[in-house]
């Protein structure tokens, strides 16, 4: 059953507040790319994926492979809000002894489907999971979130070819197309344009959406599920730092935490 759109929108705000609070408490971390992925993850965990927070090891659950591991804060917040672990634990992010490692570790926290942090590696893992499902006659789907800068990694395109070759229609890649990476706009560093054409030429079903429009996000997930002869990619146009005015579209907020003053300002903007 699908949560109501208004509730999902409210949840997105809650998750955004978590992200700024967590990174502020940690004194480091990656708010920019976390904030741009919020609708994409909330849509998955609260309206799309087959999963059960009480049974994180459920063999038939849909999988979420986070390829851009630096946005751990958004994943941790969504998992906590879904009930995988206590929300209070979010503030232990990046602290000694915490299960919330700076980049996700599948051995340390329930609900994490892969360990990541080295970019470019997630889509291969998603393919492997899809091949295993095929051999095991399981019907779970595999979602994989990638950054746009991350697409500069060669391994991504190796995996793009592999998924198309093996017709892994249970794989749904999601590109957080915020056009920013650390050194600046992606188009200025090593451009991706025309991105949709690239995936199309590699035999993927391409869905281009506004990644902050929940209705479009949910419709895209449904469309992807109905494609049965090839993998799908959702190219989600987003704004890095979305929801916090002074973070929006600023490369510098990729990997720096807000101080107390900035946190207060951000929370005021994110109030209900």
């Amino acid at each position: 059953m699908r949560a109501d759109l208004q509730e999902l929108k409210a949840l997105c705000k809650e998750v955004r507040r978590d992200i700024v609070k967590m990174t502020a408490a940690a004194g480091s971390g990656h708010p920019g790319g976390s904030l741009s992925s919020v609708e994409l993850l909330v849509g998955l965990y609260f309206a799309k994926m087959r999963h059960d927070p009480q049974r994180p090891d459920w063999a038939d659950r849909d999988r979420f492979i986070l390829s851009k591991g630096h946005v751990a804060p958004v994943l941790y917040s969504v998992l906590a809000r879904a009930g995988y672990f206590p929300v209070e634990e979010l503030l232990t992010l990046r602290k000694l002894g915490s299960r919330l490692q700076g980049h996700p570790s599948m051995l340390s926290l329930p609900g994490i489907d892969n360990s990541s942090g080295s970019l470019g590696q997630g889509l291969s893992q998603a393919n492997g999971l899809a091949l295993a499902a095929r051999l095991n006659k399981q019907d779970y789907r595999v979602y994989c979130l990638l950054g746009d800068g991350e697409l500069q990694e060669g391994q991504v395109w190796e995996a793009v070819m592999t998924a198309a070759h093996y017709k892994l229609s249970s794989v749904c890649a999601i590109v957080d197309y915020n056009n920013l990476q650390i050194d600046g706009p992606v188009e200025e560093v090593i451009g991706l344009h025309p991105l949709a054409d690239k995936w199309q030429a590699f035999n993927w079903h391409v869905i281009s959406i506004d990644g902050h429009d929940l209705e479009q996000v949910l419709a895209a997930y449904d469309e992807a599920e109905n494609v049965k002869d090839k993998p799908s990619v959702i190219i989600a146009k987003t704004i890095k730092g979305k929801g916090v005015s002074f973070m929006e579209n600023v490369a510098g907020w990729h990997g720096r935490a807000p101080n107390q003053e900035e946190l207060a300002k951000a929370l005021a903007e994110l109030a209900n």
């Binding site: 489907d113 590696q121 291969s124 393919n127 070819m161 592999t162």
Partner: peptide
Amino acid sequence: RFFDIGIAEQDMLGTAAGLAMGGK
């Protein structure tokens, strides 16, 4: 039960990782 991943060693290791996550 055999997968040729092509001349793409990094992808092969990642795919193997996913297969292991899936119980293989």
